[in-house]
Computed example of a mutant assay.
Amino acid sequence: MLRRIYDWTMSLASRKSAEVWLAIIAFVESSVFLVPADVLFIPMTLARPERAWRYALTATLFSVLGGIAGWMLGYYAFETIARPILEFYGKAEAFDSLRTGVDYKTVLLLLVTSGLAHLPPIKVVTILAGVAHVDIVLFIVSAILARGARFLLIAWLLRRYGEPIRHFIEKQMGRIALALAAFAILAYLAYRFLAH
């Protein structure tokens, strides 16, 4: 089923309505959908590099709006709506582990790491932020910075290097983002340790 969803998402890149679909996918990825917006964003940007910044801004804006929807699900409707969504994706246990083992500041850090590297999945963190009652303004600023950095960096790489960089982005970018996320987590832990 996941492969069919992935292939369907890829097929949207060649449609005239691709930018509308990018907005929809970016929105639902941040709250309920499994396939990342990158799957659509990358081929669209390669096909029309002159629109790279526009696509990056569209993806960022709608990803943040989707994140707000995820936050609202966590804040107002966790048991009735968000938990069934997490169970559908097999993420309920991982969510419960995160929920019991993190504090407010850690949720913000996870928002940055998931926004940059999809670790943990963004939808899990947006819902968790709502459950943890993370301040909505702080949540929105963190989401804009993390998601914007990701989409703008990919847009810049695709405009500068074109198709040859695609393999690097699809295969290595995740590892680099993971390394940056790990560094951010370690820096945060070191800061907390030194502060106490």
Rank of each mutant, 00 (worst) to 15 (best):
R4Y: 14
I5M: 13
S14E: 08
R15G: 11
K16V: 06
V20M: 08
A26I: 03
S31H: 03
S31I: 09
S31E: 05
V39D: 13
F41H: 05
P49F: 05
E50S: 10
R51D: 06
W53T: 14
L57F: 15
L61F: 07
W71H: 06
M72G: 12
M72F: 10
Y76A: 12
P84S: 13
P84H: 05
P84W: 04
E87Q: 15
E87S: 11
E93M: 06
F95N: 13
K105C: 08
P121A: 13
I122G: 04
K123E: 02
T126R: 07
A129S: 14
A129D: 06
A132Y: 14
V134E: 13
L138Y: 04
S142Y: 14
L145C: 07
L145A: 12
A146F: 05
G148H: 13
G148L: 11
A149M: 15
A149T: 14
R150Y: 08
R150S: 14
F151K: 10
A155P: 09
L158M: 07
R160A: 09
Y161T: 00
G162S: 06
G162W: 04
P164R: 10
R166K: 13
G174P: 09
G174A: 13
G174V: 09
I176T: 12
A177K: 08
A177R: 08
L178Y: 00
A182P: 01
